[in-house]
């Protein structure tokens, strides 16, 4: 059975149906991408998985447990971290405090210190700026902090929402390298991106969304060579 299994998910905002019966799965060790245009429902799906938005119908199972019946704040301790769209770091707190909050549900101080060291090794910039107020970081650094904060919960799966948004091309490549490294170190990744070209180059599999429905899915490589995907999302 897949690590994360979503079945016939339906989500409404008022009377408007944002997600119209979506099913997909993420297996352990994979990088799975959800691609599609603005408003396709990519962010809504991630928000529903981690309980920020309620579902109308369908099922979401993580390691066989029903996530739709789990309160949002209990999901992170099950091993799922979410790097939300727009980063949403705590602007008024220091870099270090943001990372501390990432480990909010963990109790073992030695293990937390170990994770902190791991995050600082991966992002030396964060260690240099650990006392700095997070809101004063550059966009790229804030994205690093958002990812570092998620890693502090020692997740088995990490959900990433538009990690490249608003970053300079140099940072975009760096962030995608980091995502690949995190995956190689053993964390499963479910990633939502508008930058389809970049994300397909690192993903194992992908699902293409259009106005709340999955219209195509498959190996990332084959999608990259698919004519309709090329035309619609890769700008070729």
């Amino acid at each position: 059975m897949a690590m994360l299994q979503v079945e016939n998910l339906q989500v409404f905002y008022g009377v408007i149906q944002a997600i119209k019966g979506i099913s997909f799965e993420v297996n352990q060790g994979e990088i799975v991408a959800l691609i599609g245009a603005n408003g396709a429902g990519k962010t809504t799906i991630l928000h529903t998985v981690t309980g920020l938005v309620p579902a109308k119908a369908g099922q979401i199972q993580f390691d066989g447990k029903d996530l739709l019946k789990t309160p949002s704040h209990k999901i992170v301790s099950m091993g799922m971290a979410h790097v939300p769209e727009g980063r949403r770091i705590f602007q008024e707190l220091s870099v270090y405090e943001n990372l501390q909050l990432g480990a909010f549900t963990r109790r073992d101080k030695a293990e937390i210190a170990e994770s902190l060291k791991m995050v600082y090794t991966r992002f030396p910039r964060l260690e240099e700026r650990k006392k700095q107020i997070a809101g004063t970081l550059s966009g790229g650094e804030q994205q690093m902090l958002a990812i570092g904060r998620a890693l502090m919960s020692k997740p088995r799966i990490i959900l990433m929402d538009e990690p490249s948004m608003g970053l300079s091309p140099l940072f975009v490549s760096e962030i995608f390298d980091i995502i690949q490294e995190i995956n190689k170190a053993g964390t499963t990744v479910l990633i939502v991106e508008q930058n389809a070209k970049k994300v397909l180059s690192i993903a194992n599999r992908a699902y293409v969304l259009e106005t709340g429905k999955i219209i195509q899915s498959g190996e990332a490589q084959s999608l990259m060579n698919d004519d309709s995907v090329k035309r619609a999302y890769l700008g070729e």
């Binding site: 920020l52 992170v76 301790s77 979410h82 939300p84 008024e92 990432g102």
Partner: peptide, 21 residues
């Protein structure tokens, strides 16, 4: 206390950290 600061800034993000709002 830090959870209080986090909730006052962004309830959703605080929930994602495992904070019971």
């Amino acid at each position: 206390g830090k959870a209080m600061l986090a909730v006052s800034e962004d309830k959703g993000a605080a929930q994602l950290m495992g904070v019971n709002v």
